[in-house]
Amino acid sequence: MSGRDVVDTIQTAWAERFPELDTEPVAVVGRILRAARFLQEAADERLAGAGLTRTEFDVLSQLRRSDGPLRPGELTAGVVGSPAATTKRLHKLLDAGLVRRAADPQDGRAARVSLTPAGERLVDELLPRQLEADAALLEVLSPDQRRSLAALLRTALLRWE
């Protein structure tokens, strides 16, 4: 597939404005950021009917995959966002009756978060649809391209994280 996208236009404009600068990073970083925004918006749109955003669904999913309750800090480590963003998401999910907080038995100052039965049911209902929709978005790439992209992103994330 050939053609120019918005990132090509941005990179070219910077290269013309500042010919002494290497604008190649724009080609990768710009596309990752645009792709992430597109994927986030698509997921948010799909999940809106359930009253969730993708990041809230990610919190619920992390709890569903865990073997037991998690501390808020453990949730933050497993999703995109700050501790403050995790706290905000947890308040919304608590109010919706999808998660519950309990005192940590080892540290009374800390809390543990777990799914309620309603939260478990919701994740179990939404997960197959989410995976199907994500797979449909990725159909623009061949299976080999998807595997290569996943490997390249893994390499970068292992260094960045």
Rank of each mutant, 00 (worst) to 15 (best):
R46E: 13
R112N: 00
L60S: 04
F57T: 00
A15Q: 15
Q40G: 07
R89Q: 02
A136Q: 11
D134Q: 04
L131Y: 00
R109S: 08
Q145C: 01
R101M: 09
P19I: 02
P25K: 09
G119M: 00
A150E: 10
R4D: 08
V113A: 01
V140E: 06
E120W: 00
L149Y: 07
L152E: 14
A13G: 12
R89F: 13
Q40I: 02
E120D: 02
F18T: 08
E125K: 15
A150R: 04
P128L: 07
L63Q: 05
H91I: 12
L90F: 02
R54F: 15
D144S: 11
A36L: 14
R54I: 13
R101C: 04
E45D: 14
R109Y: 02
M1I: 03
L137Y: 05
D44K: 13
L153T: 13
E161L: 15
G51R: 10
V59F: 08
Q62A: 12
V26C: 08
T53K: 09
R17F: 07
K88Y: 14
A36F: 14
R54V: 14
F38K: 14
A118L: 00
R112L: 10
G51W: 10
V26G: 06
L122C: 04
E56C: 06
E125V: 14
A156Y: 13
L52A: 10
S82E: 06
P143T: 04
L158T: 12
L33G: 15
E139I: 05
R121L: 03
S82Y: 02
E74Q: 11
L141G: 01
P25S: 06
G30D: 05
A111D: 05
G73N: 03
F57S: 03
G81V: 06
D95S: 09
